[in-house]
């Protein structure tokens, strides 16, 4: 699916760019964005290091295992394929907690840590597992209890009014995400490929 969307966007962009005479802008955007992508990634290094370092302490002190065990009843339903005392569960929980509290800066490194740990359980290293898809869908549906700081800054006093609507909308989208992954993972076209020649 991503293959088609990715190619489709660039293909349409070039066609439309030629027809509307915006082709120079298309070229420029491609170059600029390639640069932006690297800048974003480089910008992540410091903050990633900070959180991954802290996470390592939490891991070695057994803190993550304690948290993971406490919230097991929920995670076992969301991620049935992940062993209940696997470190991935701890990272997933912390990532969700950071998301809930609107701590985007902390959520990403914790999420990437979780991905790394989920990858350990993955027999096909280039293919997403069910647990990974569930985790990603929950992340993209943006579970949060706190309005993003940017929204508060822009809306001023009116921010208080949209607190409830945001929670309701984000709650619905998260529930949808969980139901949808459960539903889609059973489809033949999204099936996990069976192991073949490459190990």
């Amino acid at each position: 699916m991503l293959n088609y969307i990715w190619f489709g966007m660039m293909f349409i962009a070039v066609i439309v760019g030629i027809l509307t005479g915006n082709i120079d802008a298309v070229t420029q955007a491609a170059i600029d964005m390639a640069k932006t992508a690297v800048e974003i990634a480089i910008g992540l290094i410091g903050i990633m290091a900070l959180w991954l370092g802290t996470m390592k302490i939490a891991e070695e002190s057994g803190l993550i295992r304690i948290i993971a065990r406490a919230i097991r009843p929920i995670t076992i339903r969301l991620f049935p394929d992940v062993p209940e005392d696997h470190p991935a569960i701890g990272s997933i929980i912390l990532n969700m907690a950071a998301n809930l509290l609107g701590l985007g800066n902390a959520a990403t490194p914790l999420g990437l840590k979780a991905m790394e740990e989920l990858q350990e359980l993955n027999p096909e290293k280039d293919t997403a597992t069910n647990a990974m898809c569930t985790f990603l869908a929950i992340n993209t549906s943006s579970v949060q209890l706190i309005l993003p700081a940017t929204v508060v800054a822009l809306m001023g006093a009116a921010a208080n009014q949209i607190f409830i609507t945001t929670i309701l909308a984000t709650g619905l989208s998260t529930i949808t995400a969980i139901i949808t992954v459960r539903f889609l993972e059973k489809f033949k076209r999204f099936e996990m490929p069976t192991r073949n020649e490459h190990d």
């Binding site: 699916m1 991905m115 998260t174």
Partner: peptide, 22 residues
Amino acid sequence: VYFGSVGIRKTRHALAAGLIAD
């Protein structure tokens, strides 16, 4: 970012689910 960090290229139903949730 998430899939890239572990080298996942085949994303299966993740994108569809994410977009439906959006």
